[in-house]
């Protein structure tokens, strides 16, 4: 965006200077800044009204209700997520909020859903299939009422701004469906990480289904590894210090001792 902005401004000044329109360019600066503040004021009124209504929708549980209705569909789309997982609900909530134009409310829900998906993710640096489908859904987000666009139309004095609602809905609906279809298609044909990991994944989910403290076990495993590593480092330091203090020059001797003490500790 930085380069684009820089390029547009510099280019139009140069172009204006070489084409005898510099005067118009200067006028455009003054005119444009004035117009934009007028627009923001017009925009603010509709924005405020809509956000007020949407706050009511949030408080009265309309958003949660729609999300609940959508749950069966979301479940099917995310076949690799356990159906009772919290992430499914978060995804549905995120979609609903997005559809109603509640972008500010949608983002935290979406981030929460991502955290849920990350918990189930095998490789923490690589996106899982569920994540890719979710983000495909999100980047082509379905919009019921494009309120900011309507606000600008109203601000510019358009007399029938609601007439763009239906065409927008058709376009966004079509894009939304095709984005999900694309994501599912990619999922089938994209070289998945490797087969072994996928098999492992399934086992991982089964474990989650049958015992809930799987996550704790994982933490214990990590701790064990860390403790082991710290132990090895401490032993190395101790040996180094001992060697230094008692000046055991023959290396073979000290190496023997090191391995001995390591074995003893474990």
């Amino acid at each position: 965006m930085n380069y684009i902005f820089y390029f547009i401004i510099v280019f139009s000044i140069i172009f204006g200077a070489t084409h005898h329109t510099l005067n118009d360019v200067v006028n455009a600066i003054l005119d444009g800044s004035q117009k934009s503040i007028e627009l923001v004021i017009a925009l603010a009124g509709i924005m405020a009204f809509w956000l007020g209504i949407m706050k009511i929708a949030e408080k009265s549980g309309v958003v949660t209700f729609i999300a609940k209705l959508l749950k069966p569909i979301t479940k099917r789309l995310f076949s690799d997520v356990p159906p009772e997982d919290e992430a499914i609900g978060d995804i549905a909530m995120n979609f609903t909020a997005n559809a109603l134009g509640l972008t500010n409310a949608a983002t935290p829900m979406g981030l929460k859903a991502m955290q849920g998906l990350q918990k189930l993710n095998k490789d923490k640096e690589v996106a899982s299939d569920a994540m890719c489908v979710f983000l495909g859904m999100n980047t082509a987000s379905f919009q019921l009422v494009p309120i900011s666009v309507i606000a600008i139309l109203v601000g510019c004095g358009y007399n029938n701004p609601t007439e763009i609602i239906l065409p927008t809905m058709i376009v966004t609906g079509f894009t939304f469906v095709s984005a999900i279809a694309l994501a599912l298609l990619f999922k089938k044909f994209y070289p998945s990480l490797n087969v072994a990991v996928e098999k492992d994944d399934r086992r991982f989910f089964e474990k989650i289904k049958f015992n809930n403290f799987n996550f704790k076990l994982d933490i214990a495993g990590i701790f064990k590894k860390i403790i082991l590593k710290v132990k090895v480092i401490l032993i190395n330091i101790r040996n180094f210090v001992l060697d230094f203090l008692f000046e055991k020059t023959p290396y073979t001797n000290s190496d023997d001792k090191k391995s001995d003490s390591e074995g003893g500790n474990e």
Binding site: F11, F15, H19, T21, D31, G32, S36, I41, M47
Partner: peptide
């Protein structure tokens, strides 16, 4: 609502002014 509009404002003015300039330059 006001907050949201205020957040959009800097972007609006940047784009509107720069594109107006581009248009005026021909």
């Amino acid at each position: 609502g006001l907050k949201v509009s205020a957040n959009i404002f800097p972007y609006l003015i940047a784009i509107i002014v720069s594109i107006s300039m581009l248009r005026a330059s021909g």
